[in-house]
Every structure is written in structure tokens, then in C-alpha cells.
Design a protein around this nucleic acid. Sequence first.
DNA 1: TTGTAAGCGTTATCAA
DNA 2: TTGATAACGCTTACAA
Lengths: 347, 347
Amino acid sequence: MKKHITIKDLALKLSVSVSTVSRALRNAPDINLKTKEAVLRLAEELDYEPNALAKSLVQKRTHLIGIIVPELDMQFFSSSIRGVQEEAYKRGYNVLIAQSNEDYELEVENIKSMVASRLDGLIVSLSRKTKDFSHFDKIIRRGIPLVLFDRTSKNIDSSKVEADGVEGAYAATEHLIEQGYKRIAHLGGPKNLEISQKRLKGFMDAMKINDMPINEEYLITCDLSREDARLKATELMSLQKPPDAIFAINDPIAIEAMKVIKEIGLNIPFHVGMIGFNDEPICELLEPKLSSVNIPTIKMGHHAAQILIDQIEGDNTRIVHEVLPCNLVIRESSNKRGFIKQNKVSV
Amino acid sequence: MKKHITIKDLALKLSVSVSTVSRALRNAPDINLKTKEAVLRLAEELDYEPNALAKSLVQKRTHLIGIIVPELDMQFFSSSIRGVQEEAYKRGYNVLIAQSNEDYELEVENIKSMVASRLDGLIVSLSRKTKDFSHFDKIIRRGIPLVLFDRTSKNIDSSKVEADGVEGAYAATEHLIEQGYKRIAHLGGPKNLEISQKRLKGFMDAMKINDMPINEEYLITCDLSREDARLKATELMSLQKPPDAIFAINDPIAIEAMKVIKEIGLNIPFHVGMIGFNDEPICELLEPKLSSVNIPTIKMGHHAAQILIDQIEGDNTRIVHEVLPCNLVIRESSNKRGFIKQNKVSV
DNA sequence: TTGTAAGCGTTATCAA
DNA sequence: TTGATAACGCTTACAA
């Protein structure tokens, strides 16, 4: 790697001091316009690019925020990241993205690296395998601003931004009940994740309030991998009395369940109703189109970034916990009544 | 933000010099085992975390590589990134991810920021709007290792890793011809992108070799946005003699075209055959399942990282250009013969 | 308006 | 095996 031009080089060539160059580059007020222009011209000419490392070292601020997500190829996460970026750029921060690949060790590693690089703050969505939270305790003890995002945990004492999973699950479940489904199952996520707990709670609440019997066999969890989802969906459909509707923890899981059901030769939504969560664009492309719970991802990203940067800039240690409303999007996969009417099937 | 512990603090508490502490932390050879243990113990106790900024400043190496992609929510990119990460971690590098959102200014901004942060090397996949390459000239002039990835350009004089678009497009087109399609169209990408040019070339080659007439009206380009794809597909299907098969530049574009065709009431693959590119997981979930050209993404990521890191570590200025073979995956959307046989339709 | 000098947290080069 | 000390490239008092 070739030598980078430094302010020293510029100073030398112009026979001024480094502080003068520094002033010119930062367009500080106390500098002669002519010297400033000369510096700027030379900098341009020599292709000077400031060394952020040096600057950060002295200022103790990197103007960098980090975001760690379990995976990138879900619209949910990538779109949230876009929200974070938009807000961050607006306020003069750059965003460093990392993915933990749903792996605990990698999550720890990523955080360590970001702390070492002295990022000004972190936004994290927990990996599904994260059950120990001591790496977050460290961050908090250090006083590094932290916002948990979507995949949160009550074991971590930080600001949080999440979607209202209870409410969303409630709406989804109630919709299934209204459509006349009787044996409704929930294909949930790992118990250690709070989103799993909340969506389960919304499900249970809706069932109870509507006097629906709860069958323990219909309360299944998977580890959020496609493989396990397929396995658990198969188990579910192999029960003596299989469910006639499934509320899945998210869209990829719902999609696996749909595959299983179609392979058995059952019709969705007629024999089995299905609702997912996240409202990934793919929902629109499936046959039947998958009903799902929409989450305001961009907005969540905005809020997370706002809270984080406020915390970075004010010495505002106040912990904020934001819960954004979701929105049930009804499509074909749960529209039993519509299907019956349209196809003139008798029940 | 609280004060970070530094080696100075450790040195003070242990009444040794900073260089001793530094040696202990880096487990240098020339140090007494006992002092080393004492240092390590105290560091652990005080929750010392090294300041990578300072280290990088003096070493002129960050052990960070950056990757910039147009967007994150395509399996193609996120999976390539995973490949880059795997290789990078293996060799002691961390990976910083950024997305340009297909925006030229943001691409320039991202690169600037990475250069300012003195990343050791960059892997870049061009945004679809990038037609000016001077920001890359600067990088190259600086001697910063650079590998272009998938979305490359011959205007940039750097190492490159890409899939064999000509070959992939050729195979796809030839397959359509073999299936008996007669009026084959290509819904391509913007001309400034080399992948567009290559896939077009593969298409043309296959048509010519098989003595298929080329209808200029069937050679359409879109800007890779869903909206434009829909528009162009609609135009294509509104022609007096619409095509009976489309080879699309990638899967999202193919999906938009499929939607349009289905809305008109035509059957895929019977009335119109369709093939995409990238082999996103969604291909399997569509109805009909979308034929596509598979790209070895993880492998491409590995190679890109290898080439980059080799370049970083050796002062190996040799430019490498790797073209990895693709693989046509035939599914329902292009299987006209199969469809005819199965449904006993007469042609 | 400019320059001098100290310092940010490391590593690296000498001596001791 | 250890300790001074000078860098790294920048900002920031303070002095001129």
C-alpha cells in the first residue's frame, strides 16, 4: 500500500504549520481565506483523504454506529437497516453492518470487534442461539450506547425497539377464529427469544378470549431453521387430529409449513389456514398468497437510530422502550370464507 | 461514554512500563511469564478492551476489509457476503458491510468512508447507476487493494470475480430453444452494467448458432427495478406478436414478468416460457417453479476474499480475473414439453 | 491569523 | 526481561 498523504505533507509543501492545515480542512473560523483556499486546492490536487483513525483517536468519537443482525437476506432486516442508515446519515453517522449468521460466538465476536473499533453506539438484534447475555453487560458497564432491536431480551438492561408481537399475534389468531377454523395451532420460535414468547402470548390470549380450546399438541416450537420448521410442521400434520389452521412465528416458517401441507394434498386455505409474520414481499408471490402481520421496518430502523444517537449525543442515559404497532394483512391463505364462497364448496 | 481502560492504566496499577503491558497483551516472546500473567489477570479484571484505532494508526493495518453491495435482501448478495466472511475470519480479518441501495452517490460515500477508516481492502459490487468510475481510479492510484465482484466494469483496472454470464445465458437460451419456443425475448438490464452485456451476448450467441431469428422488439432492457420490469414486461406482452418465451436478466425481473403474464391469463410454461438468473430460493416457491441459472455465490465470496487478502498481504499487484461457471436449473417455468405431455394439451 | 506543543492509545526501536 | 522514547496523523489549547 502506497503512503497516504497527511496534513504534515500539505503543511510542508505550503510552508505553514499543521494546525493551519487542520483548520483549513475542518473549515474552522479562525483562518485566512487565502491560506484556506491554498490548502484546499493542494489537498484536492494531492488527493488527500483524512485519516479517520487519527481523528477518532483524539476526539474519542468515530461517528460510526454498528448494527448486528442475525441474517441479511430477509427483507425484514435489510429494510430495517435501511431505516437505520437513513436516520444515521441525516445526523452525520455512518453505519457498519454485521451479520451473526444466527451464531452466538459470531455475535460475541462482532460486538468485540465493534467495541475495539470504538464505534459510538450499537444496535443489535439477538441471534436465536443467544442465551447468555454477559457480552451485553460489558457494553452497558462501559457506558456504550446500546439499542436492542426486534430480537430483544428482558435480561438486557438497555433501550429497545420492537414490534407489538402480542397485538400482531392476537389479531392474526382472532382472524383465523373468525374465519371458522376450529383446531388452531401455533408453530412458534425458540423459548429464549422474547418475540417467541410474545407471539405465543398473543395467540393464547386470542384463543382464551374467544373460548377456543387449547390443545397442547398444537403448541409447537421450532428453532427458526427451515429444516426444523419442515420437521415440526410434518409432526403437526401427522397428529391423529391435525390442526385446521396454523399461525406461524414468521413467514419463512409459514412457507415451510405450506409446502408440507400442499405435499400432503391438502388445500390452503380450505383444509388448513395459514398466517405468517413479517409480511415479506414473498407473501404476495406464493400460491395461495400468504396472510401475514406487517411490521413497520423502516420506521423501526429510524426509531432505533434516533434513540441511539440521542443517547450518544446527549449523555442521556434514560432507557427507552418502544413498541410499534403491527398490521394484519389478510390474503388468500387464511381466507376460508372467501374460498368457500368463490369455489362453491360445501363444508 | 465512560472512560476506557488503557494500557497506561494497567501499567500504572502494576508499576511496570506500558511497553511491558503491551508485550504481555500481544503475548510477545520477550517477557517474563509471571509479569505476563499478572497483566492478563488485571486486564481481565478491569475489563480492558484494546483500542483498535490506536493500534491501526501505528501499524497502518486495520485487518478490516469492506464489502459494498447494491442491496442486501437478495440471497445472491447476502450469501456472497457470507462467503467473504468465512474466508476473511479464517485469515484474521473482519468484514465491514455496506449497501449502496443501488445509488451512485451512496456508493461513492461508502467508499470514501471506508478509505477514511483505512480499511485494508475493498470488495465492491457496482450499483446499477454507476457510470462514472473515478472513485475507483482514486482507490487504485492509492494502491488500496480492490476486488470487483459480480457487477464489474472493464473501465476499472482491478481484480475481478464474476459468474460466467455469457455461458449461463447461453445455456438458458438454448434450453428455451430446445423446448420448442420460437419467439424468444430477452428482458435485460441497463447497458452500463457488464453483467447485462454478457447475458445479452450469451443470449444472442445461442440464438444465432441455432438459427433463430432475432427480433429487435424482443430485445428489451429495464433498470432492474421492479416497477420498470413490470412496465417493460407489459410492453413486451402487448406487442402485436408477443414473445412465447422470456429469458430475464435475473429472478426478481423474471418474477415481475411472470406476474404480468399470469394477469393476462396466459399459462407459464405453455404459452410463455420463463427463465431467470441467480437461482434465488424463491424460485422453488413460485408457481410454476422458476427455472434459473445458479451461481456459486459462497464460492465467489471465498475467491473474492482470497484474492483480496493475497493482494493485501503479498505486495502482489497482479490482477486476477476469475470467471466461475454457472449451472442452469430447469424447473417448471420453462418445461414446455413436460407440461404438454403431462396435461395432454395439443399444440 | 498563525504556530507551538501536548496528547489520543498503541507499537516499535533502542538501551539498559 | 524490561523501560524510555519516538512515532502514527490528527485535534486542541495556548501562545505569539
